[in-house]
């Protein structure tokens, strides 16, 4: 290895050390789910309840039941996201039903981006996106702590520079 000793990366040789996402992203998504469920349940309950009779108000249970299912899905999806920094490439794994695993060699990175929308900023989250010369590369790690996102960005750009290669 030219740079990035295993001790520093936390990766020993070929065995990748997987890191999950911090719980902030899950909290944000679940909160959003609750808000939308409340709005939908209110609409689904109030409109038929007022127009057609109180029995029809039970329609409000439909969004609630859906939300309970989505609640579980969000949890599974959040748990499925993981990434590993190896000595020479970044691994990203995600998906429950449709699984995808992406490997990006550091030398191929053209640009590392840290993005954070207003909602994400409120929940103190940031995502790191890697761009290579291939448009099909969709290597993004969402919902990181801003400090971790910046650490990852700095490390990736440093490694990318050390192993840089053109097209």
């Amino acid at each position: 290895m030219e740079t990035g000793s295993p001790a520093e990366t936390g990766a020993a040789g070929d065995e990748p050390v997987w890191r999950g996402l911090p719980p902030g992203l899950l909290r944000m998504r679940r909160l959003l789910l609750l808000v939308w469920t409340a709005v939908l349940a209110l609409a689904a309950g109030l409109l038929p309840g007022l127009l057609a009779g109180p029995v029809w108000g039970t329609f409000a249970l439909l969004p609630v039941a859906l939300a309970a299912w989505f609640w579980r899905l969000l949890g599974r999806n959040w748990r499925s996201w993981r990434y590993a920094e190896r000595a020479d490439d970044l691994l990203i794994r995600r998906g429950v039903l449709w699984r995808e695993e992406t490997v990006v060699p550091y030398g191929r990175m053209q640009l590392v981006e840290v993005t954070s929308g207003p909602l994400e900023r409120y929940f103190d989250l940031a995502s790191v996106q890697l761009h290579t010369a291939a448009a099909a590369t969709d290597a993004v790690v969402p919902g990181l702590d801003p400090a971790e996102a910046e650490r990852l960005r700095d490390r990736l750009s440093e490694l990318g520079e050390a192993r840089s290669a053109g097209l």
């Binding site: 995808e100 490997v103 290579t132 291939a134 099909a136």
Partner: peptide
């Protein structure tokens, strides 16, 4: 090769099959 990806859907997992994609700089896969 710019990046390598492995994808597997639910039906593919049932049959223990997966696809490997290789992305190149010309925008092709």
């Amino acid at each position: 090769v710019q990046s390598v990806r492995l994808t597997q859907g639910p039906w593919g997992r049932l049959w223990r099959l997966a696809d490997v994609h290789v992305d190149t700089g010309a925008g092709g896969t």
